[in-house]
Design a protein around this nucleic acid. Structure first.
Length: 414
RNA sequence: GGACAGGUGGGUGAGCUGGCUGAAACCACCUCCCUGCUAAGGAGGCGUACCCAUUGCGGGUACCGAGGGUUCGAAUCCCUCCCUGUCCGCCA
């Protein structure tokens, strides 16, 4: 959530940064004005309440002393009506303010390149050279069907389109990758966690999926529960509404979960193959840090994910997302894109974001600094989407005879 | 899913015949005093959010699971929901 007081005090600065993310200044001005009105009305209400409280106290006293209370009672009743009317106004303002404020994305960091969409993302560096094939490399779906590794038709039969079934070596590879990643992350100091795969609306609100992106979530009928779109949701919300007494070193967590996304609005994109599914496995990294430490931990997380790809021998590149391509909650994001020889393209396989205090403010995640309670920073990153890693291995390790070699690093896990 | 019992501050736990209770007491924690170290002892402090004032102390509102209601006034009474415990049913 945007910091309303910062918006009030530093309007031009905040508005300028938000404009690069496509937020209209008019909306911001509206919010600012609403905030000021709200404060004014709230204060008026509090004065009326103060009056009511002190007169009520008198009332009790008069009664005990046997004094006449009729006049006082009348005054209290009038004041009570005023309070009720005012309360309505304040509640209304608050609701409006809240609804608007929750729609505002996180302002980008000043060093994020300004741009419109993914075309304007900036490549930072490449790791590992793509290998030269002495034959035409195939795409993963072709390999997958031929080898009996991926069954797309039956996935559709069981659920619907954008679901698939992994079989034999692919199924084992999937499991091996999960274990491999979790072990790797542990060596980077991330504590392994196993969370629920369903979460309630307060949880989704905390990390920013709700209220704005409800269309992309699978909801359980008649329950306040959603299938999680990423473990970021549950990991970050572990500390929702808490004041962390000791944050002298950052909290670093990792978890494997399946992720569920409706992929609303991506109709027609990546329909073929396993790139974009309604359900996929992911190992996630989350960190909760003091503000002054989040940049350092961000670098660590990028490094952690990248070294995973390096260990697997998968060529990849770092992309700094431009302002226009940044997610709703992120102030800064680096995507890792893996080389897919079949497609002849780099494709996103990991996304690491610093949300600064944006999620912490929504989820009320704070820590003690002396006597004060301050908002933490929260960070999240995929330590690789497992399905896409599987695809990358298939395409990069394919051989002329159509079989697929297993990366050395995975051998102990198979 | 059914029956009963509960949900109070970091913890334990009083208050629950409505006003003097934002909340006793104890523990934990912090500061100071005492002490050769440790232990013990003594004095004080110790919830959260927001608003006002800030030269100085400070002042106000809200919060006792959540939301409604009754009342001049509710942690205390009523309703709904959520959660926890125990027993029964069901089940991996």
């Amino acid at each position: 959530m945007v910091d309303l007081r910062l918006l009030e005090k530093n309007f031009d600065e905040v508005a300028k940064r938000l404009r690069t993310k496509g937020v209209e200044e008019k909306l911001l001005a509206e919010i600012k004005e609403l905030f000021e009105t709200y404060k004014k009305e709230k204060r008026a209400l509090e004065e009326l309440q103060a009056k009511q409280n002190s007169l009520s106290k008198l009332f009790g006293q008069y009664k005990r002393e046997g004094k006449d209370i009729n006049e006082l009672k009348e005054e209290l009743e009038i004041n009570k009506a005023k309070i009720a009317a005012h309360q309505e106004v304040v509640r209304d303002l608050q609701e409006k303010l809240n609804n608007l404020a929750l729609q505002i994305p996180n302002p980008p960091d000043p060093d994020v390149p300004i741009g419109k969409d993914e075309e304007d993302n900036v490549e930072i560096k490449r790791v590992l050279e793509p290998k030269k094939f002495d034959f035409e490399p195939k795409e993963h779906w072709e390999l997958g069907e031929k080898l009996g590794w991926i069954d797309f038709e039956r996935g559709v039969k069981l659920a619907k389109s954008r679901f698939s079934v992994l079989k034999s070596t692919a199924a084992r590879l999937e499991r091996a990758l999960i274990n491999f990643m979790l072990d790797h992350n542990r060596s980077y100091g991330f504590e392994e966690v196993c969370t629920p795969f369903l979460a309630n609306s307060a949880t989704l609100l905390g990390t920013g999926q709700l209220p704005k992106f409800a269309d992309d979530l699978f909801k359980i009928e008649d329950e306040d529960l959603y299938l999680i779109p990423t473990a970021e949701v549950t990991l970050t919300n572990l500390y929702r509404d808490e004041i962390i007494t000791d944050l002298s070193s950052p909290i670093k967590l990792t978890a494997y979960t399946p992720c569920f996304r409706k992929e609303a609005g991506s109709g027609g994109k990546d329909v073929r193959g396993m790139i974009r599914q309604h359900q996929f496995d992911k190992v996630e990294l989350v960190a909760i840090t003091k503000p002054e430490e989040s940049d350092k931990v961000f670098e660590e997380m990028v490094e952690c994910a990248s070294s995973l790809l390096t260990k697997l021998g998968l060529p990849h590149r770092y992309m700094m997302l431009c302002t226009g391509d940044l997610g709703f909650s992120a102030a800064k994001t680096i995507d890792l894109e893996v080389w897919l020889p079949g497609q002849g393209k780099y494709r996103e396989i990991s996304s690491i974001s610093n949300t600064r205090d944006f999620q912490a403010r929504r989820a009320k995640i704070r820590y003690k600094e002396g006597k004060k309670n301050l908002l933490t920073h929260t960070l999240n990153g995929s330590s690789l989407a497992v399905g896409r890693t599987l695809i990358a291995i298939m395409e990069n390790y394919q051989q002329k005879d159509g079989t697929i070699a297993i990366p050395k690093a995975l051998e102990p896990y198979m």
